[in-house]
Amino acid sequence: MSINVRDLNESEFFYGHKACAGCGGSLAVRIALKVLGERSVAVLPAGCMSAVGFNFPQLCFANNAIISTFAGTASMLTGIEAGLRAKGVSDFHAVGFAGDGGTADIGLQALSGAIDRNDNIIYICYDNEAYMNTGIQKSSLTPFGARTTTTPAGKNIRGNVKDKKNMFEIVAAHGIPYAATASIGYMNDFMNKVDKASRIHGTKYIHVMAPCPTGWGHEPCETVEIAKEAVDCGLWYLAEYEDSEYILNRNVKDFTDISQYLRKQSRFRHLRDEDIEYITKSRDAKWNEIRTKYKTV
């Protein structure tokens, strides 16, 4: 049973928010909440989605939603789940929406603890590859070569010198019941992963790639296309981790041109050919690893 756009909940649970035009993160939150329904309690740490969703008195969530501390998304989810369970409520989802910084840097400890306790929560990380709402600072999920305000592109150092951390495999290494990567460029895949997560007991983690026109430097209308292109050129991949097994959902046979993807974004505009060569090499190395370690369908 897969869900598609026709049987998606018609209610809007994230509406009238103040995100930039063409925001990928708000699209991920909107669709995830439509899949999960109104009986979901959303937790939002400091980050874009809490900054744009709660501008008092403008409150843009139609379901229960609360802002947590930056580091405490997962621990607040734990508390909400335990509290509602203690009150005898059972038909709800405790869902968190944290950015890449709130997940891979600041919220990692709380998330790791929640997975260790196997609390019955859904944790969704919308990855826009930097701290966007504070003015585009590097996070540990910023890819190699990207220009941010803390990794500027100059004569000697051209943007971020570190590679993107593999948050999906870090989470999977906990032995979590369900983890997945997704992209807003492949919406059906994302919707079905959220739906699948809502039916599994225990901690669920979904890492969704969500381009940011402001931080990435592309046109607002290109958000969905760029997200799709990231998957097609092999710099992002769609996979799942379930029953101690990695599954690759989309085995890309012929990658599209990496430089075409990079050149569309002003954060990569300074890159030289040797940098693109390095990015291509790391992609190929990663895919060799994926093809041996992951089960392909």
Binding site: Y15, G16, K18, Q58, L59, N64
Partner: peptide, 10 residues
């Protein structure tokens, strides 16, 4: 506060 409370347009 009440959920879904909008006071300004975009």
């Amino acid at each position: 506060y009440e959920a879904g409370f909008l006071v300004s347009k975009n």
